[in-house]
Design a protein around this nucleic acid. Structure first.
Lengths: 196, 196
DNA sequence: GGATCCATGTAACGGGTTACATGATTCG
DNA sequence: CGAATCATGTAACCCGTTACATGGATCC
């Protein structure tokens, strides 16, 4: 938890207005899940779910979980294990739920740029070697094409009978990923032709 | 310049292999331009050109320029002014040119996720208020729609006769921005219907 | 019997953001 | 005559990344 929130004695939800994106994301995941989870397992969940939108480093994950507990937004439970390393399970608290709800309801004021290293490189293309750029453009396209097929595979993953309400939102974001990936692939192909 | 590059006595280009994205971007801009430029003006250039791909804070810009000079990748020239504050003009050096060329030619190994605060929020949509989400989705769509029209206006900006070789690359990246923005707007509209 | 899985950390480092500051000048 | 422009900076803060570490258990 950032130091600047320490002096906020009351109004925890308002203090929560100062969480990092990473903190909100992890807190949101805890709220998304139905059972307490270890940091280790949470990582895997991230990879399978929001990974394509956003991803924390391993170290960050553990650090954030502890911060959330310190802020009262999550609770922890230590579990002893005999044949495996001991672990700590984290769950969201009512305060935590209020915090994400407040975050979700709050309007964001700025729209971030679509950051991409490769596209930035392409912008400077005239200063470099054309063949190298083409090579990287191909890699760029292939990376998005791979993503695309991963997303599309997920699309039909869960059978309709087992769907939960939150799946609707998962699918919306999935569709976002699909549409944007598709746009990227098509653009890359068109640009490749232009470079040839 | 990061401290870790200090001990590299020779092979400046290789030391340059350790620059930040921000540093490469600014160096690339210096290489892109034909004349020395002040930090102040460079900011405006950023806003008008690569701004939608990537953008540094004001403070960063000035700091990076000084770092680039310290590394020998850029040169500076102090200009006294009578009716305006004095300024410093920066230009890329031959070493700097070699550095971006090396960067441009180098393959990137990782593909970053398509980070978006709002989409992350939508992923957690089930935990929040539906109306608030719809409101933000509209804002999201409108922001991209605005971008879209800005890009499209740029597309036909420069008359064909005055075009320079680097414009081809500018247009490629511009088209990327257009296609992705279009995809975002269409997705947002479809999702809005779904939420209604 | 070497690799991979489980499960979690520490330490160091640095880049980037936010807030604040300055002071003359030109525009409306 | 107040606001915006020009032009650059300092200070503080901290989030996030990278590298490194541990040690038993299971898999092939």
């Amino acid at each position: 938890m950032p130091a600047r929130t320490i002096d906020r004695t009351s109004a925890v939800v308002e203090a929560a207005a100062r969480l990092t994106l990473t903190e909100y994301a992890i807190l949101g995941l805890l709220g998304h899940l139905t059972e307490p989870i270890s940091g280790y397992d949470l990582r895997k969940v991230v990879e399978r779910s929001v990974g394509y939108i956003w991803q924390p480093s391993k170290t960050q994950l553990y650090a954030v979980l502890r911060r959330l507990v310190a802020a009262g937004l999550a609770s922890e439970e230590h579990v002893r294990q005999t044949h495996r390393p001991d672990k700590t399970l984290y769950a969201i608290t009512p305060t935590g739920r209020a915090a994400i709800r407040a975050w979700l309801d709050r309007d964001e004021d700025e729209s971030e740029p679509d950051r991409s290293i490769f596209v930035l490189k392409l912008f400077f293309g005239a200063q470099g070697d054309r063949a190298a750029l083409v090579r990287q453009l191909v890699a760029f396209r292939d990376a998005y094409a791979r993503r695309l097929s991963v997303y599309e595979a997920k699309w039909d993953a869960r059978p309709e009978a087992e769907r939960r309400p939150s799946d609707d939102f998962t699918r919306m974001t999935l569709r976002y990923g699909i549409e944007r990936a598709r746009a990227a692939v098509e653009w890359a192909n068109a640009t490749l032709e232009e470079l040839a």
